[in-house]
Amino acid sequence: MRFALLTALTAALLAGCTDDGKTPAATPASSPAPAPAVSGEQLPEAENPAGNLASVGKEADWDAFVLACDDPEQEAVVQQVTTGDVTGDGVADSLVARTCDGAAPYFPSTVEVFDGSSPAQRPWRIGTPLLKDVAAADKPWVTAVAVRSGEIVVQAHGTAGNGCPKLRITYRYALEGTALKQKARDEVPSGACLPAGT
Results as ranks from 00 to 15, higher is better:
C100G: 02
A68L: 09
P32N: 05
L5A: 15
C69V: 05
Y106Q: 08
T27L: 15
T128R: 15
E73W: 01
L6Y: 08
L131I: 09
G177C: 10
N162H: 12
L9R: 02
S118V: 11
Q42C: 10
Q79S: 08
R2C: 04
E75N: 14
R122L: 14
P165Y: 04
L67M: 09
S94R: 04
A92I: 00
A196K: 03
D89W: 06
P119D: 12
P119K: 10
D70V: 09
R125V: 11
I169V: 15
V147H: 08
G51R: 05
N162D: 15
R168H: 12
L180W: 03
A160R: 07
P123F: 07
V113E: 03
A54P: 01
D19Q: 13
G158R: 02
A184T: 10
G102L: 03
C69Y: 05
Q74D: 08
P123S: 12
R122H: 14
V142K: 07
N162F: 14
A136L: 13
V78M: 05
A35T: 12
A25D: 13
G197I: 07
V78P: 01
T83A: 12
G84F: 10
D61E: 06
S30G: 03
A137L: 11
T170N: 02
L175K: 07
S30F: 01
A103Q: 13
R125I: 09
A92T: 11
G84D: 06
C69S: 01
G16R: 12
D61I: 00
E73H: 05
F114C: 08
Q182N: 11
L131E: 12
C17G: 11
F3R: 14
P34M: 06
E59D: 14
Q155M: 12
P34G: 09
G88V: 02
T82E: 13
G90Q: 07
M1K: 11
S39T: 14
A104D: 13
A33W: 04
E45W: 05
P119N: 09
G163F: 03
G150A: 10
N52E: 11
G127I: 05
D101I: 00
Y171G: 06
Y106V: 10
N162V: 07
A29F: 08
S149M: 09
A104N: 09
A26M: 11
P140T: 09
A136S: 14
S39Q: 05
V111Y: 00
L43T: 08
F3S: 13
T99P: 06
W141V: 04
G57P: 00
N162A: 14
A29G: 06
G84H: 09
V77R: 15
L43H: 06
P49K: 00
C164Y: 04
A15H: 10
R168S: 12
E47S: 14
E47M: 08
Y173D: 08
N162R: 14
L194N: 10
Y171K: 04
G16D: 06
A60H: 00
L53W: 01
V81F: 02
T170S: 12
V78F: 04
G161E: 02
A196W: 02
Q79F: 04
L13Q: 06
D93Q: 11
G163V: 03
A12R: 08
C17P: 01
A120K: 02
